[in-house]
Amino acid sequence: MNKKGHVLNAILLALGLGVILTVDPRTFEPTVDSLFLLAQKIGQLSLPVVLGALFPDVDTAFGKHRKTLHNLPVLIAFLAFPIVFNNLHFVWVGVATHYVLDMVGSKRGIALFYPLSSQEYDLPTGVATSSKHADAVTVVITVAELGVLAGIHYYLISLDVSLADAAASLGAMV
């Protein structure tokens, strides 16, 4: 995807994730207070998710695009950062969804195992970044990503806990 697609993805993710983390579909009643909390959560998520969604494309300025910063070691670093330093929460969401968008929405794919392997992985669902359908593909993929995040949040583990607490909870389950 192109920069516009990643920004669109990040904005929609911040909005959708804000709803997922704020609204319990079983008990939600729209009030001024609940709408204020929703707006506050969306504001808190917007910057980290947008930064994470744009970060992998920094490799267009150096290194090899879709290799240097589009791989699992980079994602693992962003997953570990909040656990180790207790900041940059939700940046990993932007990075991970950037990867999904490039693998599913784009014809080219990404080198997930770089620097060990330069092979790029993708799914046959993508379109060219210059395609007139790129924005529609971005929206469809973003809705699917939000569905996965909602499923994780509502049925597996709450996404609004720190990654350190989530890791501890998962460790206790195993």
Rank of each mutant, 00 (worst) to 15 (best):
V140M: 13
P124N: 12
T125P: 00
P25R: 09
K67L: 02
Y121N: 04
L156M: 10
W92N: 02
V19Y: 05
Y154R: 09
P56H: 05
V137S: 07
V58E: 06
H6V: 00
P56C: 10
K107M: 10
K3P: 12
D57C: 12
F85M: 01
A164W: 08
G5E: 08
V58G: 01
F62C: 04
L35K: 00
V148R: 07
L116Q: 08
L156D: 11
V49Q: 13
S34R: 04
A128H: 04
L101T: 11
F28Y: 05
S118W: 14
G109A: 15
Q44W: 11
V161M: 12
V23M: 07
P73E: 13
V140Q: 15
F36L: 00
S130R: 02
L146G: 10
A167W: 05
G52N: 01
L21G: 07
H70G: 02
A111L: 11
F85K: 01
L149C: 14
V7C: 10
L72A: 12
N2K: 09
V95G: 13
S158G: 11
V100R: 06
F81S: 06
A14K: 14
P124Y: 06
G151A: 08
D57I: 05
I152P: 12
V140A: 15
L149E: 13
K3C: 09
L47V: 08
L35I: 05
E120Q: 15
A150W: 15
L75A: 12
H89C: 07
K3D: 14
A128G: 05
K107Q: 15
F90E: 04
E145K: 09
A53P: 05
L38C: 10
V32I: 02
G18R: 10
L8K: 01
H89F: 10
G5R: 06
I152S: 06
H133L: 14
H89N: 14
Y154M: 05
G151Y: 05
T68I: 05
A53S: 13
A167I: 00
D135Q: 06
I76L: 15
G16F: 07
D57Y: 08
G94S: 15
S34P: 02
L8F: 07
G63N: 02
L170K: 07
E145V: 12
L21D: 04
L116E: 01
L8G: 06
L17H: 10
L149I: 10
L79I: 09
V7W: 03
T68H: 03
V104Y: 09
L38D: 00
Q40L: 11
I141Y: 09
A167P: 02
Y154N: 03
S162D: 06
F113I: 11
